[in-house]
Design a binder for these strands. Structure first.
Lengths: 253, 253
DNA sequence: TAGATTGTTAATCGATTAACAATC
DNA sequence: TAGATTGTTAATCGATTAACAATC
């Protein structure tokens, strides 16, 4: 049980085979780049080629790949098919994961029809909703089922991943039911912070937050000159009513 | 032009009023938490209250807020309405931003109907597609318009933000056209790395990447015992054909 | 004043990057 | 061998966190 590769005594305290989070988040990007290279008939690629395809710099890519092992050949580069397989195995998408989608509104509908899942290691096994008007409706090749069937579906289909596409209101309740049914990874599209017990992973995709981050930078581009003219933020310690405050910044010249 | 707040000589080299990226990404989360508190009639909140609502720890929240200014009162907390306004102003969502969505498939359709945008500082001014079969179709209150009208719409509506919901294929071309029309912030849902010139901000939302990150961690949960039994990665330097490799890991006991 | 809570400091941790020895 | 490129080191940078002085 000694590690195959030597490690300094004071090396990063990652658990055996553990990989830094930032690296984990990039592995799927590398996987996609490798698939594209493979599709275009490229057999071998250097870290520079790969990095360009993935939109990162080559030092970062090599460092990331070094956590997986030594899959390249010095002086040559990486065998595209071989590296692709190794990354897919590391991520865990050489097997298929069963996924349920809960909340079949516009977004749930869109995800159900998204063809990208099937080809990338995921299989949507059920579309669930609690609305009787939706249950039984067809979406692509699937039929919307009653959320009440959750426990049974999770058990029989061995579902590990749940996707929440409900409105904010019922999201925590849905989340709790998913966890109770045995789901241990959740992708949340509802605009709310969900709490889950330890051992359950949750990731959040939030459209309006992404737009707000863009808006922050946009504001600093278009209004740069005007902004420096705006007086420093007033330090008002008497906590004024917000009604007294302007509702729009005066950015005009 | 001297800063109103003193700063150590060797302080972080952020530009005037610049805020760390990690903090910028959390401001919208705080804004939403404040809105929720406001809606529930809370007038004042401590950093602890706010941190709980936002799902972060209170030290991080206070540090984040300190980049904006001193908007709290020691011994008391933060005035919810006042802080909400200050954060909204900092992000830039006290004004409305015009947005175009390009690619009105399932996802574009879902985003067009997403009510969260209008209430959060964004106004969808056009749904665009190049498919003649879609042009003129109604989506909610809007009508899909020809992508060829992009330049005119961007100019007349002062569009700064574009959302790409096309398939991967046309995404770079759409991106280039958006940039050429004057759009300087792009939210990309297409599963492809886009290149943009300096000065254009791009953010990416990728559903299958999010699922793959979950899968990575999931694999390490369910297969933990089994995984330690799997032999160390073989270090094969002869770059074998992937056909020779197993297509599924044997994780079974 | 006593109690509460902010805003800031400083230590720690994790991520990025350039450089280069190892080696194909 | 000479040229190319990996894998790793070490420096730097940025983010997180606990602790606490400042102060309401």
């Amino acid at each position: 049980m000694t590690p195959a590769r030597s490690r300094r005594p004071g090396a990063p305290s990652r658990t055996e085979r553990g990989i830094p989070e930032a690296t984990v988040a990039r592995l799927p990007v590398y996987l996609r780049a490798l698939t594209a290279l493979s599709d275009s008939g490229t057999a071998t690629a250097s870290s520079e080629d790969l990095a360009t395809a993935a939109g990162v710099n080559s030092a970062k890519l090599r460092k990331d790949l070094s956590y997986l092992g030594s899959y390249g050949t010095r002086g040559v580069g990486y065998d595209v098919e071989y590296l692709r397989y190794q990354i897919a195995r590391e991520i865990g998408v050489t097997q298929d994961w069963s996924v349920v989608i809960v909340g079949i509104g516009n977004l749930g509908h869109a995800l159900a029809n998204y063809s990208g899942f099937g080809t990338r290691g995921f299989r949507i096994v059920a579309l669930l909703d609690a609305d009787p008007a939706l249950i039984g409706a067809r979406v692509g090749e699937m039929v919307v089922r009653d959320f009440a069937e959750l426990d049974e579906i999770v058990a029989t289909e061995d579902v590990a991943i749940g996707v929440i596409t409900t409105p904010a209101g019922p999201a925590q309740e849905v989340c709790d039911r998913l966890v109770a049914a045995g789901v241990t990874s959740i992708l949340n599209f509802a605009p709310v912070v969900l709490s889950v017990p330890a051992g359950v992973d949750i990731r959040k995709v939030d459209l309006s937050i992404e737009l707000q981050i863009l808006a922050y930078h946009e504001q600093r581009k278009s209004g740069e000159a005007a902004l420096t003219e705006v007086p420093e933020l007033p330090v008002i310690n008497g906590l004024p009513k917000v009604d007294d405050l302007p509702t729009k910044r005066g950015v005009g010249a």
